[in-house]
């Protein structure tokens, strides 16, 4: 019975972990190409996920910021006199609590012409000024509902023809962001699933090649956990390698192409690609790679080991 007691001894967890790591590394060395393909597929999926996800979140943040900006333009009726315009400016200031600037029709035309450069010079020769006198109101940071309520009150004033709260633009942008988010939400799981299936297949192939070894391990008393551990480790290491590649890719893309694009398009801060190069985010990408590898391996080899 003393011999039986020896065999039931738990042994060293550290020794088992070291064994699993050694075997996982050996398996990766034995089939470097397939593991590299698996790592690159995870890297590609994570890179796309991160960039598309960040762009979608950035676009939403931008739309949210725009909707909170609280800038209104009140267009007056062409018949409104200069005195009437000044009266309306006073009322608008009182009603909105914001800063009101009266923009006479001539100033508006001159400003538009100036913004168009040489092409705008023709505007100044028009027989009639097509632009109305307007009031530009800066409300500061306000909730979108409040901005809409003020716009409605101003629109009800006499001699006011139209109030532009920029809603049409922000709503259009919000729709674009929603569509992009929807596409990302549908596409990204597929990308991750594809990468996970590939990693799982690579490890499963390894299990198939090692089936004789696994049979022998069972014969000498290996538990299921002991047999699984190196396989799970292998999948996790492949995933971590993919995560590292993705992090490097994110760095390269954002610091290279992303920065040039941001400068060329004068992108706002919310869409600054440089924000992606954050240690926490890159660390999360690496960990996500490891998690994808682990879960994919665990799911794919479970049935095979039974």
């Amino acid at each position: 019975m003393s011999r039986l007691a020896y065999a039931f001894d738990g042994g060293s967890a550290a020794a088992r972990a070291a064994y699993a790591l050694r075997k996982a590394m050996a398996a990766m060395r034995a089939a470097p190409f397939t593991h590299l393909v698996a790592a690159f597929s995870i890297a590609a999926a994570l890179l796309l996920c991160t960039v598309i996800g960040a762009a979608t979140l950035g676009a939403r943040a931008l739309v949210e910021a725009w909707s909170r900006k609280g800038e209104l333009t009140v267009y007056l009726a062409p018949a409104a006199s200069e005195k009437e315009a000044e009266r309306l400016a006073g009322m608008a200031s009182e009603l909105s609590g914001g800063t009101v600037r009266l923009v006479p029709a001539d100033d508006a035309l001159a400003s538009l012409a100036a913004s168009m450069g040489d092409a705008g010079k023709g505007l100044l020769d028009l027989p009639d000024n097509p632009l109305p006198t307007s009031l530009e109101i800066d409300l500061g940071q306000r909730p979108a509902d409040e901005v809409r309520a003020i716009a409605a009150k101003l629109a009800a004033l006499s001699s006011v023809e139209e109030v532009d709260a920029g809603e049409a633009f922000t709503e259009r942008m919000a729709r674009v962001a929603d569509v992009a988010g929807g596409i990302a939400a549908a596409l990204l799981p597929l990308l991750l699933l594809g990468a996970a299936v590939l990693v799982g297949s690579v490890v499963r192939l390894g299990v198939h090649e090692r089936r004789r070894e696994i049979t022998i391990l069972r014969l000498v008393g290996a538990t299921d956990a002991f047999i699984r551990a190196p396989l799970w480790m292998e999948g996790t290491l492949s995933g971590l390698a993919g995560g590292l590649l993705a992090a490097a890719g994110i760095g390269a893309v954002t610091m290279g192409v992303g920065r040039s694009l941001a400068e060329a398009l004068a992108l706002p801060a919310q869409l600054d690609p440089g924000a992606l190069v954050h240690p926490l985010l890159l660390g999360a990408v690496v960990l996500a790679g490891g998690l994808v590898g682990l879960v994919a391996t665990a799911l794919s080899v479970e049935r095979q080991l039974r």
Binding site: A14, Y19, V220, A222
Partner: peptide
Amino acid sequence: NRTALENVSVSLEVLGTPA
């Protein structure tokens, strides 16, 4: 694909014996 030493070692490795 394992040496004689490695083949014999598996019986102790499953017990968690240090390498």
